[in-house]
Design a protein around this nucleic acid. Structure first.
Lengths: 343, 343
DNA sequence: TTGTAAGCGTTATCAC
DNA sequence: GTGATAACGCTTACAA
């Protein structure tokens, strides 16, 4: 019971008693058309239930009204399901929400494109072919060639999170170093004498920045060296890292954790170990995701305005789509510390 | 500096010294072609950097290799930003992850389609026009006409969460009533004498089922009536509801909350009020989302295997795309109780 | 202002 | 096996 063929411009034209071209003009709101016919055409559209075929339209206009959200698939190498981890991280949802908040009013749709190391050529080809009008790219592994490929292909694109190497491509980012410094300062101000650090994966530029930002600021406060452990941004990895740290440095009295999810894990381990937060150990997270409020005690954290950043990314992207000649631009957001109970 | 026109089949054909048709056959892996030419063609493809144009292809094949993830926009009427709320809820990410786990290996892409009450006709039209091969639809408001429209249009589609009214359309769902009953039973088994209930929004079928399932089971345990309050699935609304409940029924000793996020809010309020969980008040959530583990104490909750369900939804959808004639099917998952510390 | 006709890049149906 | 050629549904010069 396949549904019937849909009415086409041709059908509408026949009903309205005009040519295909005229119907096209009316449907696309082009002025030069007799009000009389204008009306006839719209009637015919209603009568036939005509809906323009976007594919056909895009084929000729080279515009799709869609942008791609490109997500790197490369982390899949950890055998554990990358996808469920990535997608259920608050990060993904916040980005989608932010993008949609400007895309939707603009009538632009979002297509999710997961791309592995092998898929680059295909992706670039699809984009150049007009599969989408542009691409928003989520934080990639450090040396991913994608930004460069997009740039040289001249595809409207914006990165969410700076590229690891300089590339002539627009991006939005947070000043991660400054954010981490805020955390170090706050810990120092509370009087922490033995701060420690739980970092994110070294392949992610943001991790690197948070790590160096914290260490640099800690050094300013007289801590030439800060013990650290590394996680992969999941709650579990945060717990593991905290355990390591506690074993090696039982006397630590403050810890900066590179994202809230890992901080949650750290909090749980501290509780198990009988340490009070913040009195015995102060904990500062990063992101101010929903996890921060869920934590007990509520997490002091560095606010990462991801929704705003993503919305801005969408605006930059849309601008680029309109004006492909435009300059490469970057927008850097300033983090701020959200003081709650954990530090 | 617009990038050049991409090579087309025609270009490849010229380079390979064959006809367009032959190139098409080779690229699409159709057998009847001389191994000699086969090689020539692939060489030409490499040499030119040819990538098939999906739009053009889809226009004729009526297949896009894309499915739509349809999200209702209707909740936007609460002025507060629906999008950020919806997208940052773990629900969204878990669904996307589940869908992708089967779509991605199948080489199928996902396009996000937000649709308001006005957008139905357009959406159906786009889908019938072959904008996507099928649609996965996320839990809609109770009386949304969309499922019916999809069914009568004969569009391959599957609902995640049952339709409020019977409609000949495939869906996956959780036995929400049974899940809520599990919670009621557990509370009774712990010896709770004064259970209470925090429900989700009445427009969502799942809320209704959890509500009725809990009440019915509570009745079996001798609680003819259970005091309740209603939230909207956000953490804050859970806190508010808990406050109401505590004011009206200070003696309650157990509460079933219709999702984990609201349970988080409830937990915070109970803590503020000086009540110990689970000793003074036992709390059971629903979903077993990441929030459940983040909670302190860790949340006892009803497991909702959303990733599995979404993966199954994707499989059902793909099957329907292959075999449009196929039967309407539903798959109902059994919930189970995950005992942690809050009850 | 309106119509005619030439594409957009594929696939698919034919003959050869 | 392979190559013309007609769709697919639309936009857009160019004519009228």
């Amino acid at each position: 019971m396949q549904s019937q063929r849909l009415p086409t411009l041709e059908d509408v034209a026949r009903v309205a008693g005009v040519s295909r071209a005229t119907v096209s003009r009316v449907v696309n709101g082009i002025r030069n058309v007799d009000p009389q016919l204008h009306q006839q055409v719209w009637n015919a559209v209603d009568q036939t239930g005509y809906v323009p075929n976007r594919l056909a339209r895009s084929l000729v206009t080279r515009r799709t009204g869609t942008v791609a959200l490109v997500v790197s698939d490369s982390e899949t190498h950890d055998d554990d399901p990358f996808m469920s981890r990535f997608f259920s991280d608050p990060y993904f949802g916040r980005v989608v929400g932010g993008l949609m908040s400007v895309l939707r009013p603009a009538g632009v749709q979002l297509a999710l494109q997961m791309v592995g190391a092998d898929g680059h050529r295909r992706l670039i080809g699809d984009l150049r072919n007009g599969q989408a009008d542009g691409a928003a790219v989520l934080s990639l592994p450090a040396h991913d060639p994608l930004p460069g490929l997009l740039a040289t292909a001249g595809i409207p694109a914006v990165l969410i999170g700076r590229p690891a190497e300089p590339v002539p491509i627009s991006y939005v980012d947070l000043d991660n170093e400054a954010g981490a410094a805020l955390a170090a300062d706050h810990l120092a101000a509370r009087g922490c004498r033995r701060p420690a650090l739980i970092s994110g994966p070294a392949e992610v530029p943001a991790s690197v920045d948070r790590d160096s930002g914290f260490r640099r600021a800690a050094a300013r406060h007289g801590h030439a060296w800060v013990p650290g452990a590394t996680g992969n941004f999941t709650r579990e990895s945060g717990a593991t890292a905290m355990r390591e740290l506690l074993t090696a440095h039982p006397g630590l009295d403050g810890v900066f954790v590179a994202n809230d999810l890992m901080a949650l894990g750290a909090l749980a381990v501290l509780r198990e170990s009988g340490r009070a937060v913040p009195d015995d150990v102060a904990v500062i997270g990063f992101d101010d995701s929903s996890a921060a409020l869920a934590a007990a005690p509520a997490l002091t954290t560095v606010r990462h305005p991801l929704e705003d950043m993503s919305a801005e990314a969408a605006r930059l992207l849309l601008t680029q789509v309109e004006t492909p000649a435009g300059r490469v631009r970057s927008v850097i957001y300033e983090p701020k510390l959200v003081e709650r109970q954990s530090a």
